[in-house]
Design a protein around this nucleic acid. Structure first.
Lengths: 222, 222
DNA sequence: TAGATTGTTAATCGATTAACAATC
DNA sequence: TAGATTGTTAATCGATTAACAATC
């Protein structure tokens, strides 16, 4: 049964399912049960079945799921067939890393152009993607009906660029800057790749673990 | 009152508070209330006060929070004073982007070395960080008591490297590969930077929004 | 003092887990 | 058919929000 509003948590698990199914497929498996998936992913079988059931009935009682067709169903749920158009704004180190190594097409996204202020890069192309002047950014966005802006500019200008793109009607921003840009654009879709946030969480968990171990030791020596 | 076990959601919001407070501090503000923060961050004042109260009493009734001291308290919670030692494994495009542009020190982490199989890079140094041969990786990890491995190797070898590092007693992995490495090491701390997962979520939200708008239009034309 | 805002307790809301009938 | 496993409903658990006494 299709749910009306699907929770964030569910959405964030879907790409993990997709990757795991790709892996199982590559191994030549063609059948998998929620119990097997649960072991691989560290989730409960219940949760996995609940998650899938948000989008349809992909399995078969007594059998489980067909790896191939479940994989394709999830890919469709995630919009892999939509061919959303993306542009890259800023080709510093992280922008170039994305252009050179990240396969947008594999995930159904079309990276159509990149923009930068660096005159030496303008007019060139990288991995088949042309690099244009930042001055052309807004014209291009409107004319080509860009869906997604991959934001990889310096933090200092991130909000300005984001505001302009939003006012031009862009749907979503994949945000690689260190700055939160969601507020106050409640309609804009923002996905953050906040490196430092992730590292800070990591740091917290190490500290928590160390303190837990220290406390255990203290109790042991009582 | 210090809680025993702090939920994941709370931890993930702490770095956002930290960044916002840095921003407010840079603007010269020295006082902020939970209501003001809630407007800036798109959260409820209740939630913000609840989050802070997991770690202590940082505010003052009738006044709010001192920006500086709240910022520092949160930095401590996140372990910014611990100087955890990190190594970078793999200096491909993403690895180099991290070495050149990501300021580990700003977040209290010490990047002490990088490792790669590329002979032309071995022996050089980048941004003050020496690059060693992959053959020295495991010896170094043990000898220097490395806390964190930043994993930026090809997906194909990710699990092997992660397993070896884990068995050598590393605490945490900051995972930039496309592969899940948490299972079956239940003790290992893993923070994932799964680019494709984030992009897939983005793609889903665009599709959801488009479908919602299409449905609205259909109703409007009934 | 009066106004403001915290920290915390209680109420609500939502997500996860357990259980089981349906059925392949 | 018997065994296995789904999809879904109900029960539990946890997180968010609301409310308010404490107090600066």
């Amino acid at each position: 049964m299709k749910k009306v509003k699907i929770s964030n948590n569910v959405i964030r698990r879907m790409p993990r399912y997709l990757r795991k199914l790709d892996e199982l497929r590559a191994k030549g498996l063609n059948r998998v049960s929620s119990a097997e998936l649960s072991r691989e992913l560290g989730l409960t079988p219940s949760q996995i079945r609940q998650d899938f059931s948000c989008f349809g009935e992909f399995g078969q009682q007594g059998y489980g799921y067909n790896v191939d067709s479940l994989r394709d169903s999830i890919a469709l749920v995630l919009g892999a067939d939509r061919a959303y158009k993306a542009i890259l704004v800023g080709i510093g180190n992280i922008g170039r890393a994305l252009m050179d190594n990240f396969c947008f097409a594999e995930w159904g996204i079309e990276l159509v152009a990149a923009f930068d202020v660096d005159v030496s890069a303008i007019g060139t192309s990288r991995n088949g993607v042309p690099v244009y002047s930042a001055e052309e950014l807004y014209d291009y966005t409107v004319k080509k009906q860009v869906d997604i802006a991959v934001l990889a500019v310096p933090g200092a200008v991130a909000r300005d660029v984001a505001r302009n793109l939003t006012e031009l009607g862009i749907d979503a921003i994949w945000n690689f800057t260190n700055v939160d840009i969601k507020e106050p654009y409640s309609d804009l879709i923002v996905e953050n790749m906040h490196f430092s946030d992730s590292l800070m969480a990591l740091s917290y968990y190490i500290t928590e673990r160390n303190e837990l171990m220290a406390r255990r030791e203290a109790v042991g020596n009582e």
